[in-house]
Design a protein around this nucleic acid. Sequence first.
DNA 1: GCGAAAATCAGAACGTGTTCCAATTCCGAT
DNA 2: ATCGGAATTGGAACACGTTCTGATTTTCGC
Lengths: 223, 223
Amino acid sequence: MVPVQPPLPPPIPPGAVTVPDPVPDRDAEPAAEGALARSQAARRRRVLDATLQLAAAGGFDAVQMRDVAAAADVALGTVYRYFASKERLLLEAMAEQQADLRAYLEVHPPREPTPAARVVSVLRGANHSLREFPDVTAAMVRSFGTAQIENADIVRRVTEIMTGIITSAIHAPERRAATENEVRVARILMQVWLSSLNGWVCGVDGPDRVDDDLAAAAALLLP
Amino acid sequence: MVPVQPPLPPPIPPGAVTVPDPVPDRDAEPAAEGALARSQAARRRRVLDATLQLAAAGGFDAVQMRDVAAAADVALGTVYRYFASKERLLLEAMAEQQADLRAYLEVHPPREPTPAARVVSVLRGANHSLREFPDVTAAMVRSFGTAQIENADIVRRVTEIMTGIITSAIHAPERRAATENEVRVARILMQVWLSSLNGWVCGVDGPDRVDDDLAAAAALLLP
DNA sequence: GCGAAAATCAGAACGTGTTCCAATTCCGAT
DNA sequence: ATCGGAATTGGAACACGTTCTGATTTTCGC
């Protein structure tokens, strides 16, 4: 079992949190020009980094909005200008993490011969990374489980990314549209994944259970 | 599709909340004798009823501990003596609801000819009831999704009841031990169920999606 | 450069979950 | 009937997410 090396980004290299890269605010936006946009992107990034840093230390409860603001060197009100709630903040971080995983897998698709083996390989790799920062995972999964209507958009984005990752694994390395049935199976696997993660971060099951659940489901649902 | 009639208990007949039945505190405890135990059981019940009543009105946010205490005619501290947190309060209500469903199904097992059809029938019936009180469902599912380590026991209880309901449906009406494979399948279906409910209460999907997801999963996993 | 508009800041303030405490009431054994 | 201990009460107090406000700074079009 080759552990897919760096699927999820580490929650933060503990130094260098000031003035990171001037990426555009969200993925897919045409990179607004001025200095404002630049400093805003930097601020947003600092807030997200501070969030991950705090979550890595003590999980959901350690992500206190006043601390996030302080660590990001930003006023509390500014945090709320960028992220409408603590929940949203963590969900955006989760979406970013999943998007990073997807990007990584596009460069390093799984090589196993069968769909089931590929799916298991990808998800094991992801879980491996999640297990290295259990508190970050717990914070994100918990936010996911608490989600309200006002965050439906990010929740949807996260589930779509996860489903996309799984469908890609099903028919990787060939890149073609997924069949209707593949999408159904991928959705089920994503649901199993989320529920299983929830069971883990709640302390109901050990972390291995996540891998086991997914392996069992993949074996039953995929050739 | 015969909607299984009253699988989940209605959140409360809006009247008659004072001094309900003196059932023993939890299921399976030998009904302690004295007046103390009796009044305690009544108190506990009032608190749970008040919780459901408030949840039915406005969901998770409407269940405010001070209001629960007032509605149950009990001091705030007493609520916390019985339920260590708001989350726990809602999870215990959820466990009770699921236990009621299980009890109902023992009397009215599904009659369909195939395991898949029986499972779909049972879960559709349950969903039908859940949809009648969406705010109650949302409150419970949300508590489930937020669960912490200190509530691992109830979370486990709930998942076990749900899994048990599904395994029973798989091989109902004959009552025998479930095979290892049936348990695996039941667990996957339970996870799909929970995830799907989460998607519904988050506003990501419509309520029909829950039925659809379960039907699709059952079709893929069961004969 | 200059002025208007937007963004940010610092901090107060509010609501709700949770904890704590002193006073009181209730139960059960003597 | 009474005493001791446990349960309950009413309410204050605290923590943290969230909102609000007025002052200050930054950005951009002129």
